[in-house]
Design a protein around this nucleic acid. Sequence first.
DNA 1: TATTGTTATACTCTATAACTATA
DNA 2: TATAGTTATAGAGTATAACAATA
Lengths: 157, 157
Amino acid sequence: MPDATPDPATAALAHDLRIACMRVARRVRFDADNTIAPHHFSVLVRLHEQPRTLGELAAIEQVSAPSMSRSVGQLAELGYVERAPDPDDGRLVRLSLTPDGRRVLEREREHRDAWMAARLEGLSERDRTLLRRATDLVEGILEADRAQDRARRGESR
Amino acid sequence: MPDATPDPATAALAHDLRIACMRVARRVRFDADNTIAPHHFSVLVRLHEQPRTLGELAAIEQVSAPSMSRSVGQLAELGYVERAPDPDDGRLVRLSLTPDGRRVLEREREHRDAWMAARLEGLSERDRTLLRRATDLVEGILEADRAQDRARRGESR
DNA sequence: TATTGTTATACTCTATAACTATA
DNA sequence: TATAGTTATAGAGTATAACAATA
């Protein structure tokens, strides 16, 4: 694989864009006012997409099964997640959000969006349009990356 | 403080931009090929900006003094950071990067930039220009936020 | 015998409290 | 007496290994 050095402007953009993203993420993630822990938040997000088994969750979040078992146990304790046995395969544990879990997730999402929304309101309509296009572009990059990742995992299996 | 609800387009942009940033950050931060731990990386970055004392580092990274003491101890063990007593105040420990530390930092930075750079090269010049402007815009937002933060901390002291 | 999930145990990072050295 | 940093100890999260239940 030829690893051509990018031109200086692209290299600088790669650096600056990465740093900007990481700073935004850090700002949001470590906001002292967050009501639930980051790793709990991710689990709620995944279960809101669709009910899943413990093993599926662990694979998606890239943590061990015991770790995920613990997190799910805590979320169940809090009343945000519900465990149910699979009717066909007694080994599986079907996990889903409770109404409380959905409420907490929605509240946390709004809270996390609030910081960014407040900043965007201070911009011109023109700047917001620019950011809209840039966001779509980055989403495209991430989507292509995920597709490539899936393909790589598929062929190595 | 009036907490006006943003218009739907701005709310959607806030959400999508935040998610995109967090995904980029996650992708880079948890890349399995990273050579040093995230919290060690930040310390090297701060010491590359300028030599600092342990207390300064702890305040900047928002971590307790004992935690920072431990991290610095590990980095010193690895030969990346050097401790030196302050000539005027014997209580202070002056910290700085060793040549090895600078090399590791540079290598890690390049590694972290590489993923993004490779993706940007697949884009058109036009799209890269768009991202350059968007990056500058986000940097402006973050800078304003930091300034506001400093002001808030200043007045509460 | 293989697979899903849980329990047992250990390690890492971080925190607060207690301590040492210097001002 | 106050401050900078380190050492002691505890808490939270994650990992691997061992185990229980089911296929």
